[in-house]
Design a protein around this nucleic acid. Structure first.
Lengths: 242, 242
DNA sequence: TCAAGTTGTCTAATAACATAGACAACTTGA
DNA sequence: TCAAGTTGTCTATGTTATTAGACAACTTGA
């Protein structure tokens, strides 16, 4: 790829770092694999070796690569594949990848439904809702923060229940709902906000995948709606097509 | 650079330019309106007036603002956000919603398949591929940049063909393929890199949705694989769940 | 053991970025 | 007309980015 952006206002080392990061995201450089040598990278980007070193240094600082003296520089972190299906269960996805899923309650509170939330849940504006905020991890790596709203009438004391069972599936089972499915999923991206950044152990300015979803019971009646923020650098969504 | 911005790799003038551009994009500075004076901008960004002048110069060069000596600097072109709300599949996102889709060839080249690409396309590593890089717009707003790989043997001269027809569907039709479907779609997010930022007319540090997809023919044989980067602030994906 | 290739660490020179101050040329409204 | 505020242009100076070369320290495979 050609580089040289005359006066782009972006430092060369940054352009190189971006390029390598994209290569890692692509899978052109797989996890655990050795990157090309600094000299070779310098040649492909038509840049001095010191510039490459600076790029690699920033990637190493963020934990994406690890340099081994005399040997090479290696790709550190892979992304978790996250299928978006109608029966998406966080615990199953993480467990399938050989990692241990964990849920952690951040907080629960009661609040009236906004017009938007009411529409999602098929209720009237102002209906009391329970709002549960939870952090989910794979092994010890924070993956996402989810804010879930449920009707307070249908799920009394849902906050304390979640705190005990630490799983949305188990929470619903506790109220007698054994089958539910994903009715809609909307995905977009944003920059992480300050509070999420701390909980997700994410640097400010990093991207998050924002997923709005609504789950319904077997008869199609809305049960809960969730807005989850995923650390984009740790997750990859898999969309199933026909 | 400056005291607060520890080695971001992005020049101060570029940060100021991006900030002003975003202000224009979200309507804080309306079309025809006068911007704050150079001195005032310098104060708000805690930057020298010369740095602001450089930022404004680049915006003026791109036609976003126009300086009038003795009077002020005025917003030239409105930057309307074009949210793409669509109930269609990913393949039909561009072109939905009554907007005129346009494709613009950035470049085409031949390169051997990496292991990853070969796997996607069901070919052997090293098989010659044609790589097409294209920018897609809705009306005049850049929506995404897509990099597409096709087998060179099956689609000879695909680069020039795309340049003529400016549509992947029409390109396939040209080689006798009238029916194809999306086999897999993977979505994640990242920060826009320097070269994409310029082409998408996107400020540095803004998020992009990265979509990897593979299309197959009626019998399920892979035709092409694409990695597209969408300007997240202009797009929202709706995932259909059974 | 040895040679080739790797990352780590120096020094040095040049180009680009950023700040500082001063003043000219122009517009606007009182 | 005049004062205040604006953009345009100049000189000067310090900081950061980038390139260049050399060598040390280490790993790997023959």
């Amino acid at each position: 790829m050609s580089m040289q952006d005359a006066a782009s206002g972006v430092a060369l080392w940054r352009q190189v770092a971006d390029g390598i990061e994209r290569g890692i995201a692509d899978g052109r450089f797989a996890a655990g694999e050795r990157l090309p040598g600094e000299t070779e990278i310098a040649e492909t980007y038509r840049v001095n070796r010191h510039t490459v070193r600076r790029a690699l240094a920033t990637l190493a600082e963020r934990g994406l690569v690890r340099a081994e003296r005399g040997s090479g520089t290696y790709v550190e972190a892979p992304r978790i594949a996250y299928p978006l299906r109608s029966r998406t269960r966080f615990s199953e996805i993480v467990g399938a990848g050989g990692r241990e899923p964990r849920g952690q309650l951040i907080g629960a509170s009661e609040e009236p439904a906004t017009r938007e939330l009411a529409k999602q849940l098929g209720l009237k504006t102002g209906t009391p809702l329970i709002r549960i905020e939870a952090l989910r991890l794979a092994d010890r790596t924070p993956i996402c923060i989810g804010t879930t709203w449920l009707a307070a009438a249908q799920f009394p004391d849902a906050g304390r229940t979640y705190e005990r069972v630490r799983s949305m599936t188990k929470l619903l089972a506790h109220y007698g709902i054994r089958d539910y499915r994903r009715a809609s999923t909307r995905v977009t991206a944003a920059i992480v906000d300050a509070t999420d950044a701390i909980r997700l152990d994410l640097a400010l300015g990093r991207p998050v995948l924002v997923v709005d979803s609504t789950d319904v019971d077997a008869s199609g009646r809305p049960l809960l709606t969730t807005r989850a923020r995923f650390a984009a650098e740790r997750v990859e969504f898999l969309v199933e097509n026909g």
